[in-house]
Simulated scan of single mutants.
Amino acid sequence: MTVGYTPAGKRIVKKASGRSKTEAKDKLKEIIRDYDDGLAIALVHYTVTDAVKYWLQHGLAGRSATTVKMYTTYADKHVIPAVGARKLRDLSVEDVDRWLASKTGELSPRSLKLIHGILNRSVKSAMRRDKVKRNVVDLCEIPDGREGRTSKALTLAQAGSIIALAEQANPRMRAYVVLSLLIGARTEELRALLWSHVVAFDEERKAWLPVTETGWENEQFAIYVWRSVRQKGDTKTVKSRRSLKLPRRCVEALRALREEQEKAGGKLSGTGALSSPP
């Protein structure tokens, strides 16, 4: 059926085929309706595998090689073998629910979230490229997986013992361990910490200023957690950019580190605080 003409005067023709005349007409009506509504016409032969492989190739820009390898492994082992042959336009909520349910005895809750996320992001990518009309994966609930490994979180007594040992270590390791345990910053964020991001509240100027400018004779201290040692230097997520107040023990550890660095190399304002020395 001719549905219009291009600016060059060429006909825009839509076709459909089926096992019977009625089936072909019904498909053609659906195509024409979508065209009139301004919707993209989903590709008949585009599969889940095509969508996942495209996302793995184009959707992970800026991620570390380790992260890309992890996503690829999960996709190759769990996503593509199970639902990869399914045509993307025919993928249903029931298909995804059954697939996730079949993995509950095999994978942990975290792994289930990972494989759901891989499929979800792949279909979203396909939607942006007009390969499919909607994302059924986004409508699915993630079931509980098998019980995961035993928690490796420290007990209060274990954390206290580690801090006691850290107090006897060199100033950089002492500050690294004490801040990691007491303020909730990720270790990858602390390794990227700059002295310009260690601040104190100056009572006279009523402002938060770097300790390199205002000194250590203040009551309140904080750090700006704005960087990390990840691939692009950013924190894990946008919401991870935050400011954290420092307890006195952390302040003393940072002060000792600062004094040691000044003795070793003079004024170091703006250089790394907890990163390894050059």
Score class of each variant (00 low, 15 high):
Lys124Leu: 10
Met70Leu: 12
Asn170Lys: 05
Lys10Asn: 12
Lys113Trp: 09
Asp34Gln: 13
Glu141His: 06
Lys124Gln: 13
Lys25Arg: 14
Met1Asp: 10
Leu154Val: 04
Pro210Leu: 03
Lys69Leu: 12
Leu119Pro: 02
Ile80Asn: 09
Ile31Gly: 02
Gly59Asn: 02
Ala175Asp: 05
Lys21Leu: 15
Ser276Arg: 15
Val68Gln: 14
Val251Glu: 12
Pro247Ala: 05
Lys263Thr: 10
Arg86Val: 14
Ala207Lys: 13
Glu204Val: 09
Ser102Lys: 11
Lys10Leu: 11
Leu139Phe: 00
Arg248Asp: 15
His45Asp: 15
Glu94Tyr: 07
Lys15Phe: 06
Thr155Met: 07
Lys232Cys: 10
Met127His: 02
Asp76Thr: 02
Thr6Trp: 02
Leu194Asn: 13
Ala192Glu: 15
Ala85Glu: 00
Asn218Asp: 10
Ala40Tyr: 08
Leu39Ile: 00
Gly270Ile: 11
Val79Trp: 00
Gly160Ala: 14
Trp226Ile: 12
Leu194Ala: 07
Gly9Tyr: 05
Asp97Val: 10
Asp76Glu: 14
Tyr5Asn: 01
Gly270Leu: 09
Arg249Met: 15
Lys113Met: 10
Gly272Thr: 10
Ala82Glu: 08
Ser122Glu: 03
Met173Phe: 11
Leu156Glu: 14
Leu107Val: 11
Ile31Thr: 13
Lys263Trp: 04
Glu167Ile: 02
Cys140Gln: 02
Ile31Phe: 01
Leu190His: 05
Ile80Leu: 10
Trp55Glu: 00
Arg242Asn: 05
Pro277Arg: 14
Glu252Gly: 06
Trp216Glu: 05
Pro277Leu: 14
Arg86Ser: 05
Ala16Gly: 05
Ala256Gly: 07
Ser276Thr: 13
Lys267His: 11
Ala175Thr: 04
Ala185Tyr: 08
Arg11Leu: 09
Pro210Ala: 01
Ser125Asp: 13
Thr73Gln: 15
Tyr35Cys: 00
Ala159Gln: 14
Lys232Ala: 15
Tyr54Lys: 06
Thr47Glu: 10
Gly184Arg: 07
Ala222Leu: 10
Val123Gln: 01
Val251Phe: 06
Glu188Cys: 12
Gly272Leu: 13
Trp216Ser: 05
Val225Ala: 11
Asp138Trp: 00
Val229Cys: 11
Ala75Met: 01
Ala42Gln: 07
Ala40Asn: 10
Asp95Cys: 01
Glu203Ala: 11
Gly160Ile: 02
His116Pro: 07
Arg191Phe: 09
Ile31Pro: 03
Ile183Gln: 06
Arg86Pro: 00
Thr47Cys: 07
Ile12Asn: 00
Val211Met: 11
Lys113His: 13
Pro109Asn: 15
